[in-house]
């Protein structure tokens, strides 16, 4: 009997396998009706219908922003949005993906940036300061970011707040596509996050020190020794290496043997 219980088949890859007896539901891909099994994501439903993606599909895991999608339900005036790889297809959904949107992105030179960052933001993205506060961007964001709020923080010059508030952005561009003030929110936010990371967050001093050491060639000799060592000897060093305790305070803990630091 035990033999019978062994499972021999492997379900393959990403191809959708509809559950037995799965209910079929109608969806409308750019207006045309297809019947697909319920419970699939929009992306898998579109593939089930027979489409092969070239645009509009990337990581398939909700982080790359390739598959921004707008949809309505038949008979409902409300326009909704989501990522195709993260949103479940439901009956009578009328779907349109937005694989590309022409956002405004002026180039800039962060390394040689003159003047204060807020003024630079105003120079690069004057449209940010024309936000009408309608909140459509926030309602549109598939990552539940309060886009309008970070735009407000930008206007006020709170670049730290704007950087932190926009951090989860996957740059799908849905906010920008709906903005009546024609703001490219996600591009402005990218600029602000880099300004924050470079000029506002304090620098890691221990890192700069280590970089000097590496550049001076300090570790090359040690590493060369390891490269030339017999495998048994490297194994011994590996097994004997001391483990930093999980709760050790960064920068304070030192190993007993400091010769190889």
């Amino acid at each position: 009997m035990a033999e019978d219980k062994k499972l021999k088949t492997l379900a393959t890859g990403d191809k959708t396998i509809p559950p037995e007896g799965a209910k079929m539901i109608p969806i409308y891909i750019m207006g045309r009706e297809y019947m697909v099994p319920e419970t699939l994501t929009i992306m898998k439903a579109v593939e089930y219908a027979g489409y092969s993606y070239v645009r509009g599909c990337g990581c398939r895991g909700g982080i790359c922003g390739a598959c921004g999608t707008f949809y309505r339900f038949l008979g409902d005036y409300r326009l909704r949005s989501g990522l195709a790889c993260q949103t479940v297809a439901e009956p009578n959904m009328v779907i349109m993906q937005l694989p590309f949107f022409p956002a405004n992105r002026p180039g800039y030179d962060l390394e040689n940036m003159q003047g204060n960052p807020h003024e630079e933001l105003r120079r690069l993205y004057p449209e940010v300061f024309k936000c009408v506060g309608c909140g459509t961007c926030t309602r549109t964001c598939p990552m539940d970011i309060d886009v309008m709020d970070y735009i407000a923080l930008m206007k006020r010059g709170d670049l730290r707040g704007a950087a932190l508030k926009s951090f989860d952005c996957v740059m799908c561009g849905l906010c920008t596509s709906r903005c009546p003030a024609q703001i490219s929110q996600y591009m402005a936010a990218m600029f602000v996050r880099r300004v924050f990371g470079k000029f506002i967050l304090p620098k890691a001093e221990h890192l700069s020190k280590r970089v000097e050491e590496v550049k001076s060639g300090k570790y090359e000799k040690k590493l060369k020794e390891l490269i030339g060592m017999k495998q048994e000897d490297v194994k011994k060093l590996y097994v004997e290496r001391e483990r930093e305790p999980d709760l050790a305070e960064a920068g304070k803990w030192m190993p007993k043997d400091t010769t190889n630091l």
């Binding site: 890691a204 221990h206 590496v214 570790y219 590493l223 290496r241 920068g251 030192m254 190993p255 630091l261």
Partner: peptide
């Protein structure tokens, strides 16, 4: 890049 660490141990 921390003081108690080095490329040697990373290796």
């Amino acid at each position: 890049d921390q003081e108690g660490d080095s490329p040697y141990f990373h290796y």
